[in-house]
Each structure stands twice: as structure tokens, then as C-alpha cells.
């Protein structure tokens, strides 16, 4: 983009049209990403979603240090207190401060979402790229494999695998890390298929383009063509899928925890808080309300971010 402007600047100068030169140099050249940003800014809800989600991320990182109360300190005397100034979200059956637990649990919930998304995007991109680039036998084998994974009943399998392997994982890696690795691996391992299909489709069309032919001609190697030349051009739909993937991974983890098959009670993820709260729904509805609300708000804001990104960077969706 800037090269084009420069050559036009030279042409204008050569033609002696100084006025045009002034007008051109005054305008800053626009890059692909600044264009996307301009488009993104116009989507007000996406922008609001970005702020809300960033707020959640910062709050869960910094919050536990600023909020003096412990997430694990037991205070039975003050158990089951409704929300007050002292405990803005009340206390649970053991007198834990729910606000502190939500801040602490948010770290786990959000990082499960992000890391699970990274796993699924990496798997999906690799499989899709290899299938799309090499084609033929490799492609049909990998796509059969993808179809097989798509027909697996996801939720029952998730429940089953977590239940069956959680003891071994927590014994090997400790309760927090072991469970984290397990949950992230299964969520990622059962959600890469749509990304693989997307990436494969992009690769199929991009590999026939002239600039790839040019890359072949200058002697670029296979890895370099896949990762340096094709992949960056196939990234837009992947970024959108990745954003939405964080939201659905957060929901999946909460569902697992909600069914009692996720993290242990001393790791208060948002889903786990809901699971513990549901038995006291009659006497302490606020215990359900706050964790549910943070799950809902973070997923809603992520979905709006994804919506805005789709409008901004996915060329097929530009109106």
C-alpha cells in the first residue's frame, strides 16, 4: 500500500502537480490491519464486548492481589451471608468470600478457554494445511479422519474421558495442573474439526494462485510455502473461529464442572461454583446468580467480539 502511494507521489511530483502531492502526503497510507480496525470500531457491540472481556481478564489477573480476602479461607461463622459491602457477592456454605472465588476461578476458566482454543486451532490448522496442500491420498485420509471426529458424540465423550482419566492425571501432575492439562486436551482434541475444514478449503484455493507459483519459482521449500506464503493469507477465518472458540471452550469447561466432572472443589472455576451452589438454590440464590452471570457475560462479549471480527477481517462477509 505504501509503495503505491510513494510511486504516485513521485509521479505527481514529476508532473509538477504540487497541490496533488500535498493532498497525497497528508493522507497516511492505510494498512490491512488499520483498515480492519476502522471496520471493527464501527461495530459498537463488538467494541463494548472487547472492553468487557478485557476488564474480566485484567480483573482476574490483578483482582486477587487487590481484593484482600482469600478465596480459600474458611470462616464458618460468616457462612451463607447474602451480598453486603463486606462480601459483595455473599459467602458460601463454608464462609468463603464468593467475590474472591470468582476472581480466582476466573483465572482458571479464562485460561482453560484460551489454551483449549490454542490446542484446537493448532491441531485444526495443521491438519487442514497438510490436507489442503498435499491433496490426493493424504487429503482424503485426513478428511475421513475429520469426518469421523465430527460424528463422535462430543459431550458424552468429554464426560467419559474426564471421568476415566482424571485420577491418573491428578496423581501425575497434581490436582490443578493435571486437571487443567486433561480438560484443555480433550476440549481442544474434540473441537478442531471445523477449523481443519476451513483451513483446508482456503489452502485448496490459495495453492493454485500465481503468488504461490512465484514462491515455487524462487525455490521456496514446502514448509516455507505452507507457513510463510499460504497460511498468513488463510488466517482471517481462523482468527474469527479462534475467538468464538474461546467462548465455547469456556462453556464446555463450565458444563463439565457443572456436571461435577471438572475441576476439584478447591479449584473454584465458574462452572464448579455453579455446581456447588445449585443445592442451595432455595436458600441462597445469589450463589448461583453471580458465577452464572460472569460466565454469561464473558461468553456474550466473546461472541460479539467474534461477530465484529468477522465483519472486519473476513473478506467473504464484507457488506
Amino acid at each position: 500500500m505504501s509503495e503505491v502511494t510513494e510511486s504516485r507521489v513521485q509521479a505527481a511530483a514529476a508532473g509538477g502537480a504540487l497541490a496533488e502531492l500535498g493532498a497525497l502526503t497528508a493522507k497516511k497510507p492505510r494498512s490491512l490491519w488499520s483498515n480492519a480496525w476502522r471496520q471493527y470500531r464501527r461495530h459498537r457491540l463488538a467494541l463494548a464486548g472487547t472492553f468487557v472481556f478485557l476488564f474480566f481478564v485484567v480483573a482476574t489477573i490483578v483482582g486477587p492481589f487487590l481484593w484482600g480476602k482469600s478465596a480459600t479461607a474458611i470462616d464458618v461463622v460468616n457462612a451463607m451471608q447474602p451480598p453486603s459491602l463486606e462480601h459483595p457477592m455473599g459467602t458460601d456454605t463454608l464462609g468463603h468470600d464468593v467475590f474472591a472465588r470468582i476472581l480466582w476461578g476466573g483465572r482458571v476458566s479464562i485460561s482453560v478457554g484460551v489454551v483449549a482454543m490454542l490446542v484446537s486451532i493448532t491441531l485444526g490448522t495443521l491438519i487442514g494445511a497438510v490436507a489442503g496442500y498435499f491433496g490426493r491420498f493424504i487429503d482424503s485420509t485426513l478428511m475421513r479422519f475429520t469426518d469421523l471426529f465430527l460424528s463422535l458424540p462430543t459431550l458424552p465423550l468429554l464426560l467419559l474421558v474426564t471421568y476415566l482419566f482424571r485420577d491418573r492425571m491428578t496423581q501425575t501432575f497434581g490436582p490443578l495442573i493435571g486437571m487443567f492439562l486433561l480438560v484443555v486436551a480433550i476440549i481442544g482434541g474434540l473441537s478442531w474439526m471445523p477449523v481443519a475444514r476451513l483451513v483446508r478449503a482456503e489452502f485448496l484455493s490459495l495453492k493454485e494462485k500465481e503468488f504461490i507459483e512465484a514462491a515455487h519459482c524462487i525455490g521456496a521449500g514446502t514448509t516455507s510455502i505452507i507457513f510463510r506464503h499460504i497460511l498468513p493469507n488463510a488466517l482471517s477465518p481462523v482468527i474469527v473461529a479462534a475467538t468464538l472458540g474461546v467462548g465455547s471452550a469456556i462453556i464446555t469447561e463450565s458444563t463439565l464442572s457443572f456436571l461435577g466432572l471438572g475441576f476439584s472443589p478447591d479449584t473454584p472455576t465458574w462452572g464448579r461454583l455453579l455446581y456447588d451452589a445449585q443445592d442451595y438454590i432455595q436458600i441462597a440464590p445469589y450463589l448461583v446468580l453471580f458465577p452464572g452471570l460472569v460466565i454469561f457475560l464473558s461468553v456474550l462479549s466473546i461472541n460479539y467480539i467474534g461477530d465484529g471480527l468477522r465483519d472486519a477481517i473476513d473478506p467473504q462477509h464484507t457488506l
Binding site: 452464572g292 461468553v299 456474550l300 460479539y304
Partner: peptide, 17 residues
């Protein structure tokens, strides 16, 4: 948009409340 961002376990518990 709100409807499919609401996890079913939360809607269910809300309705119960």
C-alpha cells in the same frame, strides 16, 4: 444472540430461582 450465549445450565437455574 443473547439466547445462544446463555449456557443452558444458567438459564435453567435462573428459571428455577
Amino acid at each position: 444472540f443473547i439466547g445462544f450465549s446463555l449456557p443452558t445450565f444458567f438459564t435453567g437455574l435462573l428459571l428455577i430461582i
